[in-house]
């Protein structure tokens, strides 16, 4: 006898599909270089975490001149991070002799999962890690009776 699918089965199937999709997206992100010879830039390691009141974005920026760090809001759910390195790095510095290119900055665009108010964002740089705190957009208040 075939059992009818319960709402939990359906939810679980949807969650599994979503997880697979997220994994595919992650794989696609990785299947390209983390550097761009044309713009002399490296893509930094980034992390996004969402709290009820804010979104926290961090980025690992080794060898960066702290004064050169620029953070800008491109949209309410997209920010751009750029920073110049104190020294130029080339492939040979990593022992790689079969590629050519020189890198002098970090650059990336970080999509945010929820809209934020970039005008009220704050950023600080500590231990080589850039931390950006972006308040989430306020919604309408609903009166509780």
């Amino acid at each position: 006898m075939r059992r009818r699918k319960s709402i939990f089965d359906i939810m679980r199937e949807h969650m599994e599909e979503l997880e697979e999709l997220a994994e595919e997206m992650m794989d696609q992100l990785i299947e390209r270089p983390s550097w761009d010879v044309r713009t002399h830039s490296l893509e930094p390691l980034c992390d996004v975490s969402v709290a009820p009141d804010r979104v926290i974005v961090t980025a690992d920026l080794p060898k960066v001149d702290p004064r050169s760090i620029r953070v800008s809001g491109v949209a309410d759910d997209l920010i751009e991070i750029t920073a110049k390195m104190r020294v130029k790095i080339n492939f040979e510095d990593f022992g790689v002799t079969h590629r050519r290119g020189e890198f002098s900055c970090f650059s990336c665009r970080v999509p945010l999962p929820v809209p934020v108010d970039t005008s009220r964002a704050k950023a600080r740089f500590r231990k080589g890690i850039l931390e950006i705190i972006l308040p989430r957009k306020r919604g309408y208040e609903i009166k509780v009776e």
Binding site: S34, L42, P44, L45, D60, P62, K63, I89, D93, F94, G128
Partner: peptide
């Protein structure tokens, strides 16, 4: 050499 290590270990 912490910064070099962090750069090299990125990928």
């Amino acid at each position: 050499k912490g910064e070099e290590v962090r750069l090299a270990m990125r990928d």
